[in-house]
Design a protein around this nucleic acid. Sequence first.
DNA 1: GCCAGATAGTTTACATGTTATGTATCGGGT
DNA 2: ACCCGATACATAACATGTAAACTATCTGGC
Lengths: 155, 155
Amino acid sequence: MPSLKSELKKRGDFDSVEQETTLAILRTSDLLENRLARLLREHGLTPSQYNVLRILRGEGTPLPCLDVAQRMIQVAPAITRVVDQLLKLDYITKTQSSQDRRVYMVDIKPSGRKLLAKLDKPILNLHANTMRHISQSDQKTLIRILESIRDRQSD
Amino acid sequence: MPSLKSELKKRGDFDSVEQETTLAILRTSDLLENRLARLLREHGLTPSQYNVLRILRGEGTPLPCLDVAQRMIQVAPAITRVVDQLLKLDYITKTQSSQDRRVYMVDIKPSGRKLLAKLDKPILNLHANTMRHISQSDQKTLIRILESIRDRQSD
DNA sequence: GCCAGATAGTTTACATGTTATGTATCGGGT
DNA sequence: ACCCGATACATAACATGTAAACTATCTGGC
């Protein structure tokens, strides 16, 4: 009987089912994040950098910095630095908009697309492997419940 | 039809159910973490600091630094700093073990217990509120599936 | 006794998230 | 034309996570 359950028992039982549910989500997420981060690190990317590149590739056209931030549920300052990093790595471009000079548009470069293309299969495999013991029907159930948790939140 | 689904559609459809499942977990976790962090911040604590205090309270006896780290699935350097912070805040004690002088035992102080006691109800309420629309049976399902995801991982 | 390898923590360097604050620019009302 | 509030980012300050390197201490074998 491995990690989670025994660990948590040690520090007292759950105070409520809701708390147990919350902890289960947080712990599982931690695990998944770590695995993804390790894979990305092998290619010199951080999860944030990867997400920005994904968003830009998905969009197809240049995007203002803050639009990228919004899609990552992130605050502006974080994006500024990630964009700086990606510029240094030469995976994106950043140009001041001529319509509105407050705005800076970022776009993915071919080098960035190439990197993403190289990552697509390994990442797909990672996720497939992570979920390999979970039936499709359980996955759909999971997605449904998690979605309803997110959608019912006021903020 | 709100956030997640529409957002993700924008950047291209999911590549697989496994990927969708993964993203659902990560996004939901983000949401929960943010809500908890906000509540804790009102009391001057970070999530890490709170977790360390919880572990120490649950344990009841002094614990070596690295033992605390393990239970948080964290690496040693992170603990060093969180422990330092909690020392500065005067919520814990840290004493060198006389048996093995490499080891430093940390323990929660009464002030720390008092703070946790003050937090218990609000946090319970937060979790209850987050899950208020989710049936107990769905929660149990969620816990079961998430647990099986975690338990089936090799590392 | 002594030394090599293991173990507990710390320190350093880097990337990121957060809030608060500063800067440039835009845009609408007078 | 001008000014004031809003908007797009950038910067600063702080806490945290990670890997890598370092210190102190312990321990088993010779």
